[in-house]
Design a protein around this nucleic acid. Structure first.
Lengths: 331, 331
DNA sequence: AGTGTTATTGCAACCGATCTCAGCAACCGA
DNA sequence: TCGGTTGCTGAGATCGGTTGCAATAACACT
């Protein structure tokens, strides 16, 4: 358990340290016999290479930062989970960085990651500020953004088709017989939030129904305010689309506190497809983003970019997850 | 933006690299005049020290691993959030490690962290296996566990008083007039889960009421099964204590699916105090763990141990968070 | 046998810091 | 004025690997 350096192993195996190094990181450059011997010895000693020393010398590491604004938000938590998995299947080590929306912190993470020779980074939908910031770094062009990036197609991105998602929600609600459908917005500053809202507005217009935004705030209280707004209306909508599942939860909760039942009195549909939604009361009908795929794709995009400089923009298809928070309108 | 090593700064400032090094890490050892000059030059160049190189040479870093089984579980997410904050106030960088309950992964994280010269680590309630594993490492004695550790008081721990928490729940329910109180268990393998359950059993016995465990499973479906069990009883309890908030959510959801209302038909109280609970339907009454404090205390304990080898076991007081999922029993 | 490859391995410089030791100048008291 | 401190800075080894280059061995070919 003592200090196990490459030299110790080298001595034990009777070879030079460079051979040990090669046995590990460039197996084909060592006679297989020698290699196996070395590996066996190393194994016996319980030796593993120091990622620090490696990174320092190679000037590239396997640490990959995932920058999210708030890990407490289940969407990011789920993203983190699948990305951890995806990263480690590919031999990377994911470092979760939580900014709490503080741009200074984002900055700090970027420099730190640069210093740690991260081969690339992933930033999850955050404020526009963050995506701006990343251009200040060399690093900037080795970042995959899980969001849309405005006016800069040099950064690979993976997103889900917001318009299509809202369309799915709208169609579902229409098919249930709803004609008056309200909307509650989500996290401010995010492109996705903006896109979803825009989609709602446009699609409503195209369908000749007047859009009805119950709340366009972004704070945790948006749900409560939307519910309040709903209560005050003389002619409230029979269904509500929430920009994301968390908001949907909040709306249903607030409505419930005021005696309004979902889906009996009003239908509510979310957007995200959080696992949590299945255990909400009632289980939440929602538009699911393929979070698992996003993780894998993000890493693939980054690798591709690192390899041949190609920049891709992947747009994934959302799907409707029918659970129990929607039903036909109250007659 | 080019490669900025300490030598570059040294040359630019006209001093030797050791002086630059000292200017940063041992300010008092450098003439203030020189130091300021160096710092100014460094600043101008946009220089920051390489944490990698530092860690390699010093054999100690500021990376501190937080090992949790599942970041998707809001409890761990909240823990991660406060710990990130706490860590970084003290100049540490938290590395979130997610095991998904895989002991092999826990092991891997330990070795990795050892290799990265983490000064200590934090492991959050996980299976006993994990806490066993940590003894295999030197590292083992520089770990703080957020849970109780069986038969080994050499590891600092911080926990919340389970018995007291359950007592709070029981008292609250009693004061509301409930006499028949069921219980649903939580994550298996955790000491806390065990402790809560034991507390429930003991306290029920002491209060001369027969304990009624609706489900003692640990998987995500425990809630559903508990609800099922409830429905099948001819004389179901009028209130239910859930071992943790997530289970409470699941129970309420499953009950709701079967037309049982909370708190109208049955009261449900959770344990954890997740922020999410405030936006559940109905807002969840629960026993709150001071998660914020836990993060800070965990780090403090670790530092103390590192400093003078002292090992403390902190037990925090839980508190009742009254919201809307409990009410008097249906007459 | 002589020469040209090719496969393996050793050598030593290097990555970006830290830290012990030594050198040097200024300062102190007698 | 001299030995003894004290304060500050430079030298150079070191942390644990990587990698270009040189050396040697083994094998093929004319």
């Amino acid at each position: 358990m003592a200090d196990l350096s490459i030299d110790v192993v080298a001595k034990a195996a009777g070879v030079h340290r460079s051979t040990v190094s090669r046995a590990f990181s460039r197996p084909e450059a060592v006679k297989s016999e020698t290699r196996e011997h070395i590996l066996r010895v190393a194994e016996g000693l319980g030796y593993t290479m120091s990622p620090l020393a490696q990174a320092l010398r190679r000037k590239t590491s396997t640490f990959i930062p995932l920058i999210v604004p708030d890990i407490t938000n289940p969407f990011f938590a789920e993203l983190a989970k699948t990305m951890t998995q995806a990263a480690d299947e590919r031999g990377y080590q994911l470092l979760l960085c939580v900014t709490n929306g503080d741009p200074a912190k984002t900055d700090g993470y970027f420099t730190a990651m640069q210093a740690m020779y991260a081969p690339f980074g992933i930033v999850a939908p955050s404020t526009k500020v963050d995506t701006e910031a990343l251009k200040l770094f060399d690093f900037g062009h080795k970042v995959v953004v899980i969001d849309r990036v405005e006016g800069d197609s040099s950064v690979p991105t993976v997103t889900v088709d917001s318009r299509r998602g809202i369309m799915l929600a709208l169609d579902h609600l229409h098919s249930l017989g709803h004609t008056s459908i309200g909307y509650v917005s989500g996290i401010a500053g995010t492109h996705t939030a903006q896109d979803r809202m825009d989609a709602y507005l446009e699609l409503s217009a195209e369908g000749n129904s007047t859009p009805l935004v119950l709340d366009s705030g972004s704070d945790p209280d948006a749900g409560a305010r939307a519910a309040q707004h709903y209560l005050e209306m003389e002619n409230p909508p029979t269904a509500i689309i929430a920009a994301n599942d968390m908001v949907a939860f909040a709306v249903i909760s607030a409505l419930g506190q005021n005696g309004i039942r979902v889906p009996d009195d009003v239908s509510v549909i979310g957007f995200d497809g959080l696992a949590l939604g299945a255990r909400f009361n009632p289980p939440l009908t929602t538009v699911r983003q393929p979070i698992d795929d996003m993780g894998n794709i993000a890493i693939e995009l980054a690798e591709k970019q690192n390899l041949n400089g190609s920049v891709e923009h992947i747009v994934l298809e959302p799907e409707l997850l029918m659970r129990a928070s929607t039903a036909g309108p109250r007659k």
